[in-house]
């Protein structure tokens, strides 16, 4: 079976004024369709470069990236992205923030004016699945941080992307809200079945959500280990309190400790 996302022996060097920054070094990871993968590593290990590479914003210097059997040569258009900062547009209502990608990406772009009502209905339904029923006509600044992040997830998913790229999406939230949003993401993933690459430095988050965890070394980022997470789906949040869960987190933690020392 061929992989849906195949990052094959990729090296990336940013050329700066004072020498290059070696971000990724011969990095290889592949994902099956519908897989939930997490990428963890010490800070500054090139995790964010990975986001840019996979979405086609930056070409690799060596190696290649394939999505759905096709080599990535430019913006992939089939990926949704969400970041630590929700980055909502303050002059747009929640629903219009969610609809933003449809105003850009084809084929929705050319249909958008004609079928606006249908799209709005879809957006409202999506907002309802993340628990934002009745918030569609509010402005982002009327929402709490956790709610804004939910809107950001909806914006990333509105065009039904096959691949969802998340760059530390929950890092700025408090612990309770974070766990709440883990469950929101888990439910969305189980319901819709997209492929996810979640970049995070939270080992519990990675262990709870992912099928596989890929650990990277400090810069230049190399793949250090891949860990399968055996817990059955659907996973209730109580999994986090099982000894087996804690063992995995400890194992990952010890490994990161080694990696950081170099």
């Amino acid at each position: 079976m061929t992989a849906f996302v195949d990052i094959d022996d990729v090296t990336l060097v940013y050329k700066g004024a004072n020498g290059g920054v070696h971000a990724l070094d011969r990095f290889s990871v592949s994902l099956q369709k519908g897989e939930f993968a997490a990428v963890v590593g010490p800070s500054g290990c090139g995790k964010s470069s990975l986001m840019k590479l996979v979405t086609g914003l930056v070409p690799p210097d060596f190696g290649k990236i394939q999505i759905g059997g096709e080599t990535v040569r430019g913006p992939v258009k089939m990926a949704g992205m969400a970041f630590q900062n929700p980055n909502l547009l303050p002059w747009r209502k929640v629903i219009d923030n969610v609809l933003l990608p449809l105003e850009i990406v084809q084929p929705h772009r050319s249909r958008f004016r004609r079928e606006k009502e249908r799209y709005r209905e879809e957006a409202r339904a999506l907002l309802a699945t993340v628990g934002l029923d009745g918030f569609a006509e509010r402005f982002p600044w009327e929402l709490s941080g956790g709610m804004q992040q939910r809107v950001s997830l909806c914006r990333a998913l509105i065009h039904s992307p096959a691949l969802l790229m998340l760059d530390e999406p929950f890092a700025a939230l408090d612990a309770f809200t974070r766990e709440e949003l883990w469950c929101v993401l888990r439910d969305l993933w189980e319901k819709i079945g997209f492929t996810v690459i979640l970049v995070t430095h939270d080992l519990r988050e990675a262990t709870f959500l992912a099928d596989r965890i890929h650990m990277m070394s400090a810069r230049p980022g190399r793949l250090v280990m891949t860990k399968e997470i055996p817990f059955p789906r659907p996973r209730p949040i109580e999994v986090c309190f099982e000894p087996a869960f804690t063992d995995i987190v400890h194992e990952l933690r010890a490994k990161i400790g080694e990696v950081r020392k170099g």
Partner: peptide
């Protein structure tokens, strides 16, 4: 990052 979100969609 916002620019990235849109550029990745082909904006």
């Amino acid at each position: 990052e916002l620019e990235d979100v849109l550029r990745a969609l082909g904006a």
